[in-house]
Design a protein around this nucleic acid. Structure first.
Length: 425
RNA sequence: GGAGGCGUCGCCUAGUCCGGUCUAUGGCGCCGCACUGCUAAUGCGGUUUGGGUCUUAUACAUCCAUCGAGGGUUCAAAUCCCUCCGCCUCCGCCA
């Protein structure tokens, strides 16, 4: 959630941000009014409660006739206190409900617009000219099937569409990617974490995934728990309701978990292969930092993502995601998009968001800076989303004979193999 | 899944049976001040978090809430009742 003080002092800034996101601006005024009602009924409650307490203190010592008088007065007050309390709660809940609907304040440098209005910041690597090499590239599924690495048909048979089996070298490739990613993160000072895949509503809501993204989240009715779409959720909620000493920051975690996404509303989109699936493994970086360090940390996360993709030898571009395409929690987001030869375009492989204190406020994660207690900032960034990375590796590193070149960083985890080769059927 | 125990403002802890004197006790730690060649020791004061009021002020003062969370009973709840959450012990089942 955003800072209510900012909203009171500079509502126009919040309105502008809301507009840039393409969200309802009227929400801001409804929230201001609910907040004011909460405040005024709170003042009333405090007064009544104070009076009630002072009467209550007199009762045990009072003479019988005084006592009767006091009790009569107290009984009246009881109802008034209850009413004021209810009014305060009601306005408070209304304000909170509205506040939770409000997205984070968009960073002023973010390009305004929808999905297509991103800015390209950097381009890395060389896109191969397969024509000049004398063959037409195959897509990742055709390659993966020939390598005995991917089995979509049985994935669908057993679990439905958008499910898959990774088999043989496919399974090994996943493990190699995870190991290499965790190794890179650990070397950079991250604490490796294996996190729960099921979380309570509080954690899900606190990270901002029950708003606009709610339809994309699996919910287990029977236990009222959610399957996480990213380990960002358990990592952000890890320090929920805690106050962290300033000298402990930054805290950096590299979470490894399965990720579950319903992919609602993506029918007909990326239906072939493992580019868009309901379940995949991901190594995610997550940082808790002091607010003044958030922007620098955001760039650091981006650097680690670039280091990873450069190590895999993938051509990619870095984009500054447009305001309308930010998640609710992000004030700014950089995506690294790898070139996918058979699609002829760059597609998202990693994504890093600066959430400022948006998640920290919702989850009540604060820092102690001298005498002051204040919300800190949280940031997240993908290091390796396995399935998409496999897609990019297979397609970019394929050879004319259908074999696939293995980037050096992965070789130690693949028994030194330099090439994945098709298997006889 | 069954039985029992527990949860107090950093940590430990008193208080809960029997509601008001709890404005939550004491110790440890921490912060400030004083004293002291240094250190140590000692003394005094302070030390949960959130929301208000006052204010130029994140200072001072003050009010309200907060004893795992929520609800109830009552003039009044750490204390009584209900629900939930978490932890511990034992039994059952199990990778």
């Amino acid at each position: 959630m955003i800072d209510l003080r900012l909203l009171r002092e500079d509502p126009d800034r919040v309105r502008a941000s809301q507009r840039a996101r393409g969200e309802d601006v009227a929400l801001v005024d409804a929230l201001l009014s609910a907040d004011e009602r909460r405040r005024s009924s709170g003042v009333r409650f405090d007064e009544l409660r104070s009076e009630q307490k002072s009467i209550g203190k007199l009762i045990p010592k009072a003479s019988p006739e005084e006592k009767a008088e006091l009790l009569k007065k107290a009984e009246q007050l009881k109802a008034e206190v209850k009413a004021a309390d209810a009014a305060q709660d009601e306005a408070g809940e209304e304000a909170r409900g509205l506040l939770l609907k409000l997205g984070n304040i968009v960073h002023p440098d973010v390009p305004v617009g929808g999905e297509e209005d991103f800015t390209v910041l950097e381009t890395h690597g060389t896109i191969r000219d397969f024509g000049a090499e004398g063959f037409t590239p195959k897509d990742h599924l055709e390659l993966g099937e020939a390598l005995g690495a991917i089995d979509m048909e049985r994935g669908a048979k057993v679990s439905g569409s958008r499910f898959y089996y990774l088999t043989g070298v496919g399974a090994l490739l996943e493990l190699a990617l995870v190991n290499a990613a965790v190794a890179q993160a650990t070397a950079a000072g991250f604490t490796p974490m294996i996190t729960p895949a099921l979380v309570r509503p509080q954690a899900m809501e606190g990270t901002g995934f029950l708003g606009q993204a709610a339809a994309d989240v699996y919910h287990l009715e029977q236990d009222d728990t959610y399957l996480v779409g990213t380990s960002e959720v358990p990592l952000a909620a890890y320090h929920m309701d805690e106050i962290i000493d300033a000298d402990k920051l930054p805290l950096r975690y590299a979470g490894y978990s399965s990720c579950f996404r319903r992919e609602a509303g993506t029918y007909g989109k990326d239906t072939r292969g493992i580019f868009r699936v309901h379940q995949f493994e991901k190594v995610e970086m997550f940082s808790y930092v002091a607010p003044e360090d958030a922007e620098a940390e955001h760039l650091r996360l981006l650097e680690w993502e670039k280091e990873w993709l450069l190590g895999l030898g993938l051509p990619f571009q870095v984009i500054d995601v447009a305001s309308g395409d930010l998640g609710a929690s992000a004030s700014r987001k950089y995506d690294c998009e790898a070139w996918i030869p058979t699609q002829g375009k760059y597609r998202e492989l990693t994504s890093t968001s600066n959430c400022d204190s948006f998640q920290a406020r919702r989850l009540s994660v604060r820092m102690r800076d001298g005498k002051q207690v204040k919300p800190l900032s949280t940031l997240n960034g993908t290091l390796c989303a396995v399935t998409r990375t496999i897609v990019a590796i297979l397609e970019n590193h394929q050879q004319a004979d259908g074999s696939v070149w293995v980037p050096e960083v992965l070789r130690p985890y693949l028994g030194g193999r330099e090439l994945l080769e098709p298997i006889a059927k």
